[in-house]
Computed example of a mutant assay.
Amino acid sequence: MAVWDKAAELLEDCSWLDQVVAVTKRSRSRWDALRFQVDFFRTLRSSHCDLAIDLRSGTRSAILAFLSGASQRIGFYAADGKLWRNRLFTSLVHHDYTPDQHVIDYLLALLEAFGITTNQRSPELAVAATKQEAIRGLLEEAGVSQEKKLVAVQPFSLWHYKEWGEEKYISLIRWLVAEYGVAVLVTGSAVERERAEEIVRRCGAGCYNLAGKTSLATYAALLQKCHFFVGVDSAGLHIAAAVGTVTLGIFGPSSPESWAPKGGPHRIVQKKMDCVPCRQKGCDNSEKSRCLDELTQDEVRSMIAAQQGGNSAKGVS
């Protein structure tokens, strides 16, 4: 499986994968870039692939499929003017993405067109025991009580128009600690650590800053340890669902119909407004989302209470 290098470690423990090919996108000198590309495709071709399946629609992955040396190469037909890309495949599927379609169903449609079917339509991630042990050590080092159930809260996104607001998360975390008697772990990337620290400082006892303290793979192990995840439409939401943790996704202008974790106990909360989801980068692409600004504490708390079966204290069921 070929994936961006930042996601490669998520697949390390997948039992049905023989090899993960990490595609990097970092800046290199012209000579280093050429040498890297030669080595990369030499390694790829050494696998002697018979079949290449391109789930993306761009040019980079099409070239990768072609240079893999696979005699059969399948992908989505591109009607965006890059028709040369289509010539790199031996078989193409005409299947346009529509806003009412979940991305999972869209991607699986490519496989189904060639008779590759599955009843398992939600992603699953395996987590090795070594990573689980590393998380136990991390929680002990952070002083997190091993007797309390853990709730992961991810307030941050690469895209600020998807964020609900730090003041609201502070209030929500205080409520979670008081109402359910849980330990709340504020998660995020290393660059978000200072923002997380401010939230934790203002929340007080029962709240811990884990932002930037894990790799992506050990983040999966951390989320697997949690009883519940609440946070923005982000990678964390999908990783939590993939390791079997119950999720509540806070959605703004993006469409949960396309992006929310599917099935089971997973839920979303989104402001009911005529313009939602607009699928834009905030109102009129302003990077500010009124639907999130006006989403209230009561709306989020009510969804959590309903999701947890109304059980409180103080101890999540």
Rank of each mutant, 00 (worst) to 15 (best):
residue 278 C to I: 01
residue 96 D to L: 14
residue 59 T to F: 13
residue 203 C to G: 07
residue 103 V to L: 14
residue 79 A to N: 02
residue 299 E to D: 00
residue 276 V to A: 08
residue 277 P to Q: 06
residue 168 K to W: 07
residue 159 W to I: 02
residue 27 S to A: 06
residue 273 M to D: 10
residue 136 R to A: 15
residue 193 R to A: 02
residue 128 A to T: 15
residue 123 P to M: 12
residue 133 E to Q: 13
residue 100 D to I: 03
residue 281 K to P: 00
residue 238 H to C: 05
residue 83 L to F: 14
residue 172 L to H: 12
residue 273 M to K: 13
residue 191 V to I: 15
residue 42 R to L: 04
residue 239 I to T: 13
residue 40 F to D: 00
residue 115 G to C: 02
residue 132 Q to T: 14
residue 15 S to Y: 08
residue 110 L to G: 00
residue 79 A to W: 00
residue 143 G to W: 11
residue 77 Y to S: 08
residue 240 A to F: 11
residue 92 L to V: 13
residue 51 L to R: 04
residue 35 R to L: 15
residue 70 A to C: 14
residue 194 E to G: 11
residue 254 S to M: 10
residue 28 R to N: 06
residue 128 A to L: 10
residue 112 E to R: 09
residue 21 V to T: 10
residue 69 G to Q: 06
residue 312 S to M: 14
residue 143 G to M: 08
residue 70 A to Y: 12
residue 86 N to H: 03
residue 71 S to C: 07
residue 217 A to W: 09
residue 314 K to C: 06
residue 9 E to N: 12
residue 109 A to G: 03
residue 86 N to L: 00
residue 215 S to T: 15
residue 8 A to R: 00
residue 56 R to Y: 08
residue 72 Q to P: 04
residue 197 E to K: 13
residue 48 H to L: 09
residue 202 R to C: 11
residue 179 E to G: 02
residue 197 E to G: 06
residue 190 A to G: 11
residue 176 L to H: 05
residue 250 I to M: 02
residue 290 R to M: 08
residue 57 S to N: 06
residue 294 E to C: 07
residue 25 K to T: 09
residue 279 R to H: 14
residue 315 G to H: 07
residue 26 R to L: 08
residue 296 T to N: 02
residue 162 K to Q: 01
residue 126 A to E: 15
residue 145 S to M: 04
residue 78 A to C: 08
residue 91 S to I: 06
residue 162 K to R: 05
residue 174 R to W: 03
residue 162 K to H: 01
residue 26 R to P: 00
residue 132 Q to P: 05
residue 9 E to D: 15
residue 243 V to G: 05
residue 102 H to C: 07
residue 257 E to F: 04
residue 266 H to C: 12
residue 32 D to Q: 09
residue 203 C to N: 00
residue 274 D to Y: 10
residue 163 E to R: 03
residue 183 A to G: 08
